[in-house]
Simulated assay, not measured.
Amino acid sequence: MLTRFDDFPIHQTPDPISTPATGEKDFYERYWFNGYSKAGDMYLGVGTARYPHLGIQDCGISIVHNGVQHAFHASARANSEPTDLGVGPFNLEIIEPMKVCRVVLEPNETGFSADLTFEARTAAIEEPRHHWSDGHRRIMDTTRFTQFGRWHGWIAYDGLRMEIDRTETYGTKDRSWGVRPVAGGDTRGAPQAPRAMGLFFLWAPLHWDDMCSHYQLFEDTLGRPRFHVGAFLPAYDFANDIPGVEDPGVESMHRLEHRLEFEPGSRMIKAATLAMTSLENDARHEIAFEKQFTYRMKGIGYSHPTWPHGAWKGELAMESERWNLAEVDDLAFENQHVQHLMKVRMGDRQGIGVLEQSIFGPYRPYGLEGHVAAPG
Rank of each mutant, 00 (worst) to 15 (best):
G135Y: 09
H136F: 14
R137P: 05
R137A: 10
R138F: 08
I139N: 07
D141T: 11
R144D: 01
G149P: 01
R150N: 02
W151H: 02
H152L: 05
W154F: 05
Y157M: 10
Y157C: 02
D158N: 14
G159I: 07
R161N: 00
E163A: 12
I164V: 10
D165F: 05
D165N: 09
R166W: 01
E168W: 00
T169W: 10
Y170P: 00
G171D: 03
T172L: 14
K173Y: 08
K173G: 07
D174T: 07
R175A: 11
S176E: 01
S176Q: 08
G178S: 09
P181H: 01
P181R: 06
G184N: 02
G184D: 08
G185K: 01
T187A: 09
T187Y: 01
T187Q: 13
R188T: 15
G189V: 03
P191H: 11
P191F: 07
P191R: 13
Q192K: 13
Q192G: 09
A193G: 07
P194S: 09
P194A: 09
R195T: 12
R195C: 08
M197S: 12
M197E: 04
G198Q: 04
L199W: 10
L199Y: 08
F200C: 13
A204M: 11
P205H: 11
P205D: 07
D210M: 10
D210C: 00
M211E: 13
C212G: 04
Y215D: 02
Q216P: 00
L217E: 06
F218V: 10
E219C: 15
T221H: 03
L222H: 10
G223M: 04
G223H: 00
G223D: 02
R224E: 15
R224D: 14
R226Q: 14
G230D: 05
F232V: 09
F232D: 07
L233K: 04
L233W: 02
P234G: 04
P234K: 08
A235E: 13
A235T: 12
N240S: 13
N240L: 15
